[in-house]
Design a protein around this nucleic acid. Sequence first.
DNA 1: GGAAAAGCTGACTGTTCGGTCAAGAACTGA
DNA 2: TCAGTTCTTGACCGAACAGTCAGCTTTTCC
Lengths: 242, 242
Amino acid sequence: MANAMARTAADTTDTTSPQGRIRRENVERILKAAERIFAEAGFAGATMADIAERAGLPKANLHYYFGTKEDLYRAVLDNILRMWLAPIDSFTPDADPSVALTAYVTAKMEASRTRPHASKVFANEILHGGTQVERFLAEDLKSLVDAKAGVIDGWVAAGRMAPVDARQFLFMIWAVTQHYADFDVQIRKVLGRRTLTRQDFAAMTAEVLRLVLRAAGLPELQIAEPQVSELEPPTDSVPSIS
Amino acid sequence: MANAMARTAADTTDTTSPQGRIRRENVERILKAAERIFAEAGFAGATMADIAERAGLPKANLHYYFGTKEDLYRAVLDNILRMWLAPIDSFTPDADPSVALTAYVTAKMEASRTRPHASKVFANEILHGGTQVERFLAEDLKSLVDAKAGVIDGWVAAGRMAPVDARQFLFMIWAVTQHYADFDVQIRKVLGRRTLTRQDFAAMTAEVLRLVLRAAGLPELQIAEPQVSELEPPTDSVPSIS
DNA sequence: GGAAAAGCTGACTGTTCGGTCAAGAACTGA
DNA sequence: TCAGTTCTTGACCGAACAGTCAGCTTTTCC
């Protein structure tokens, strides 16, 4: 029953206790490979063998760290959800709506550029019923949306932006920004481009911002430079799926 | 080799020749069932047995009409793509931008309401690389977008709407309208509703229109009544996935 | 009415895939 | 150094699945 312990430790992504350097490294490798394979093929289409190959480990090893395919999938989703909520923090009653919106849209577009696989895994999960994230949606996300809708309503009431249905407005932002990760194949084909570069994303972000701010009845901010973080690892832009 | 002929006939969805009343009826039943199952489970997750059960036919019968699972999937996609392009016809140089946009957004939202499965099948296909619709994207869709982008550019040049990047603007409309079909689970959970009714969709459509028209710098049209067709079969609004 | 064509389907097959396991290798800490 | 723990992995298994097929029934058309 070594698996029982292994599974628990992996589940909670325990960052405490230095025990298991090997474990942490392997878990991370597997999660990264799994995110990619799940994004490309969906839960049902992904195979443990594919993930194992991508991670450079034998299949039995994945089962050692994560008991089952579903456990692994849940761990991948957990990872994604944890970073899903953060960027909307810029929405506070006292913030300037233009600044807050600009920061949020920029962050979401950055997420679509740098972590397209994460976005796709999430989209795929929702598309197929979201049974694995039901609680997240109905509790964490709903609370957050309720709170942020209140902030937006406050901005509207104060005449600081045009009247909008706050929730629909948030849906619009999510739809548009995530579209650039989830539907990248369609976008590339329609634009006749093989890949979307960092520059492409900068231009698309600027246009999305223009449209969103206009929809909110706000003036466009003059940004010195799109705050594209240069610190991140040099990821291969949006990968072309062969 | 009875299959060889069956497959050909099904592939081309031949509407000519009265041969095969039974065939047409069964093909339609199977396609309808398949669209639903593929939407719920994706290509890999769907099983021929599931589709057969939903269609109320033995599995071997599906293979009689459609040779393989992939053939059936392609037929479902074909069906979807054929209706995907039509509603944008309202974009013509002489049309009033507000009217054209209103008609288009309304049609897209209606599609999301009445045929959510179709939208999901398409989304799933794109999400996973779109290998089955590559030609459609790169040829049919690209041509259409090129043409309609020209129309929008004309409107902008004539000062009839605010300056936009025409292609990004179209992406935004697609993203937002299809979001209501593809991410319905998330929307329902966040709004705390079990289903989205016709009335819900009317309200959401109005809000989407407001945002889109504002983004285009256009005044909102006063619509007598949202042109919800009452002719269609009384579909079960957006089905809740259990 | 009869023959040819079209439609039907239970039973079967080969493959793929998730998951197991036992035996051993590599670490860890005293 | 050595015992205990963690990690590794090839070989295997059973279930699920797409696809086949032979023999049957129903429909069509003369």
